[in-house]
Write a protein that binds this DNA or RNA. Sequence first.
RNA 1: GUGGACGUAGCUCAGUUGGUUAGAGCGCCAGGUUGUGGUCCUGGAGGUCGUGGGUUCAAAUCCCACCGUUCACCCCA
Length: 420
Amino acid sequence: MSTFQNIKGTFDILPDPYTDDGGTRVASTAEWRYVEDTLRDVMARHNFDEIRTPILEPTELVARGVGESTDIVQKEMFAFERGDTNYVLRPEVTAPVVRSFLQHHLEQRGGVQKLFYMGPCFRAEQPQKGRYRQFHQFGVEVLGTDDARADAETIAIMTALYEALGIADTRLRVNTLGTPDRREKYVEALRDYLEPYADDLSDTSRRRLERNPLRVLDTKLEHEQQIVQDAPQLIDYVNDESRAHYDRVKGLLDDLGVPYDEDPHLVRGLDYYTETTFELESAALGAQSALAGGGRERLFLALDAADVTLPGSADPDVFIAALGQDAERWVFRTTQKLRADGLHVALDLKGRSLKAQMKEANRQNAPYALIIGDNELEAREATVKEMESGEQVTVAFDELTEYLSTHASEGAEEAPVTGG
RNA sequence: GUGGACGUAGCUCAGUUGGUUAGAGCGCCAGGUUGUGGUCCUGGAGGUCGUGGGUUCAAAUCCCACCGUUCACCCCA
């Protein structure tokens, strides 16, 4: 075991996928890139612009944005002081985006600002399966409108994203939280309703009843779900405006043909959420089924559970094997020239035997291998081996780019990497 | 912070009631083929058995402590 390890709750992303100590499959860089590219593509089609903000932010910004009393601020921030400034590794991106929006007067761009972001966030929670201290978050913020269409579009985008990535068996649940003042009244009513059942509740739910009654609604226990089923519903407590807004959002989802279930007991953990709330869940994830809500994502777990196959690393178009020092020099020069011509070229950097170089060409899955030795240098012709058939031809040095461009591109269909 | 599980080669793991030099598969390197990959054969490198202490003639194995990892709880994505 090496001396240093990655910090607990973080993970390395490597050229190849691997399984971590907890049994979770960690995707390769190529898979991450594919997902990121797909997200960007979908967002572009929805006319969203990307925003990138610093990972380091003032502690006070986050504390106020998320709420001083939340667990995130109380005990889950990586915060430190340097000089007379308090810094924090961002635990979420909404506050930074709003900060940036205000600071740079983005409203001056005119119209509604539709922004998305992706990048690492940090929370000092105890890590467990699928939850990390450094995690990657994707999200969208629509600023400058409270139109129901903004909500509907955001929800529709989330389903579109998962569709684009090939995750089909998702279920969308929606609800409205209304305004904070009404929600407080609802919490009281909920508490009153649940108190009489306290003896029937699990320890967990009893504790939640004390501290955060809304969380009792999330129970997974069947007999508790029956109690919850008849509990007061949020929709009966929100004001007319919230209700009308909610109805418009649902109508728009209907228009778009986005299927959803209304869940009158769907709540979110943090209290800064208002109005429309939603949760996209995947049956394949089991107990912790929530994928996205308010724009928070657990993408790779879902991709893994859904058995989605992503493209792997690109294979080289050609591997060039050199025999002897003269050939090595020629190969080194020619490799750069072919690369400048747009080809993906691999070569040996250890001066190994031809046998070892051919083995490497095979391992890298190159469709063609060039063999260059004294004979080839003298004739100014490369020996070109087609790896699958094993057939060899000679190609004049001057025609290499053309030959490889036409032949290699045919055979070099990107081979998918098998997931799971 | 609380509870459980685990820690042997790069990876996945075996290792009997404690018993000699700790093994397998895969991967890696080399040879068989001094200019040719995949399959095959042969060989090789690679281990403070997580760390420290204890019991014992003898500890990977039993006991204790610590460290690390992990799952779950809390909370939440």
